[in-house]
Computed example of a mutant assay.
Amino acid sequence: MMENQKLLVEFMSLLLDWKTRPAFTAVSQIQSDAGVSEFDVEIDPRAERWYSRHRNSDAWARCDGALSAQFSNTGELPPGSPPALSVRLGFPTSLPIWGRRNDYFRPVGAEEANGEGVMLLRHPIDLSIFGSVTLDLDRGIAVRLTSPVHVWRLEDIRDVDHAKSQFGPSNRSSVK
């Protein structure tokens, strides 16, 4: 039991240290009862900026930094909007997993195997409802959020090629 709690604290600390992670691109999948949607995403945690483009439509959204407005192909998003669902795994404090007032889950345990960490989640009121967050321990990022009603997943994760970045060449993201 003690080892489980120690691992949970380690994984939570890893996620809460998200602003130190280098920029990356990925394919983001959001699966629900409505089907699966795929997005090409670029996430730069250090600069708190992101870009998301739906693979089967012209829909896109972006945020150029924490203090910047968020835009989509339909216009400016309301101030204070959380990141798009497709990029939230790159900004783990925006995930509904921390046991805050409106969160769906709270962390209750952890396990590790094959270079991945899994944080076990439990609904704060209905204790029979579980979920999980899977972490890529080498990259230090969340790569999957699973609940009874949806799965958010990042796949094909790669370091950003700054020459092809949605934000142009940048040295800030490559600093270690």
Rank of each mutant, 00 (worst) to 15 (best):
M1W: 06
E3Q: 14
E3T: 08
N4I: 03
Q5P: 00
L8V: 03
V9E: 13
F11I: 03
F11S: 03
M12H: 00
L14R: 08
L15P: 01
L15W: 02
K19Y: 06
T20C: 04
T20P: 00
T20N: 12
R21M: 07
A23P: 03
F24Q: 06
Q29M: 09
Q29L: 10
I30Q: 12
Q31A: 12
S32Y: 03
S32N: 14
G35N: 11
S37P: 00
E38M: 14
F39V: 08
I43C: 07
P45S: 15
P45C: 12
A47K: 05
E48S: 12
R49V: 06
R49W: 04
S52Q: 12
S52G: 10
R53T: 11
R53G: 09
R53L: 10
N56P: 00
N56E: 15
S57F: 07
D58R: 09
A59C: 02
G65T: 06
G65C: 09
G65L: 11
L67F: 01
S68Y: 01
S68C: 14
S68M: 15
A69T: 07
F71L: 15
S72G: 15
S72Y: 02
T74C: 10
E76L: 15
P78L: 14
P79N: 14
P79Q: 15
P79A: 15
P79W: 02
S81Q: 14
S81R: 14
P82H: 13
R88F: 00
L89M: 10
G90Q: 08
F91G: 11
T93S: 10
P96M: 04
I97H: 06
I97K: 06
W98Y: 01
W98M: 13
G99N: 09
Y104L: 10
F105W: 07
F105C: 08
R106I: 04
G109K: 04
E111I: 02
N114L: 10
P124C: 02
P124D: 03
I125N: 13
L127A: 11
S128V: 04
I129R: 05
S132E: 10
V133M: 02
T134A: 11
D136Q: 06
D136W: 05
D136C: 07
D136G: 05
D138M: 12
R139N: 03
R139A: 13
R139C: 09
G140V: 05
G140F: 02
A142V: 05
R144D: 04
T146F: 02
S147C: 06
V149C: 07
V149Q: 13
V151A: 13
E155T: 15
H162D: 04
S165N: 09
G168T: 02
G168Y: 01
S174F: 02
K176N: 05
